[in-house]
Design a protein around this nucleic acid. Structure first.
Lengths: 135, 135
DNA sequence: CGAGAATAGGTGGTAATACCATCTAAAGTA
DNA sequence: TACTTTAGATGGTATTACCACCTATTCTCG
């Protein structure tokens, strides 16, 4: 399986560009990139701390602190799990529920200048390629 | 000027995946992602602090500290600029010069499992699309 | 059932990252 | 020459993330 080094390079460059856009979108709401990710995840899931940590690739203790701060800012709720008194379920607070879609929309808007350099057909092709890439 | 929301989503997902790979490659050498970026930049440039800051999207003071730590680890050299005694030129130390290509190679290797899910033709197509995206 | 191991999460301590406001030294400008 | 701007460094703060360790709960198996 051969590789095109240029494609690789572009992939890295693009990733940095995208991350910069995301960081900025997060910063506009005084959020870190990680907090942004947490909110995005919580839109569709109510994970336990350990699950969140695994998904984010972080230590449990890091996530504990992260959620601490998010709770303090009333974005997120900590609920003791019903089936396991040790475990904690993290979910969006009402305020978090209001914020999350706003963020998604803003990120979409912020990325559009990038993607709109491609025709719709090209965007679809890109989406397909990336889907394959992500497996 | 329409947009395919799925392509957008994949782009974000892919970026996170790529960043995770890069972070891990950096961490294997006890480097942060930012330090990795600095080393990559220094392979081809000898920027002043302010230029580096602009490129990285960071505050000058952040870069100052960043370079501090890199100097302390003997990866990087601080040289007073010849034409401007206020300015500092940052360059790779001999050790940095040895490390940088290693990192590049390792990152390439770490990303190959991803890109090799595409045929060579698809990789080239992806590269072309991303090139257009990056303008 | 009950003792010891395993698991979930939190704490405390440390280091790095990044910000802002401020400082000094050097250049540029009027 | 005096005034302003610029380059970078410093000090102070908050966040992020780690590791080692602690507590409370749950699991396991004798």
């Amino acid at each position: 399986m051969d590789a095109d080094p240029e494609a690789l390079d572009r992939l890295v460059q693009t990733s940095f560009t995208v991350m910069a856009v995301l960081s900025q979108a997060a910063a506009a709401h005084d959020l870190s990139l990680t907090q942004l990710r947490v909110l995005a995840i919580l839109r569709d899931h109510e994970p336990k701390i350990a699950e969140l940590a695994a998904y984010l690739g972080l230590d449990r203790s890091s996530v504990s602190g992260l959620i601490d701060r998010a709770v303090k800012r009333d974005l997120v709720l900590r609920t003791t799990s019903e089936d396991d008194a040790r475990a904690v379920r993290v979910s969006l607070s009402p305020a978090g529920h209001r914020l999350a879609p706003t963020l998604t929309a803003e990120i979409g808007a912020a990325l559009t200048p990038l993607t709109s350099k491609l025709t719709l057909a090209e965007q679809r092709k890109l989406g397909a390629l990336l889907t394959k890439l992500l497996d």
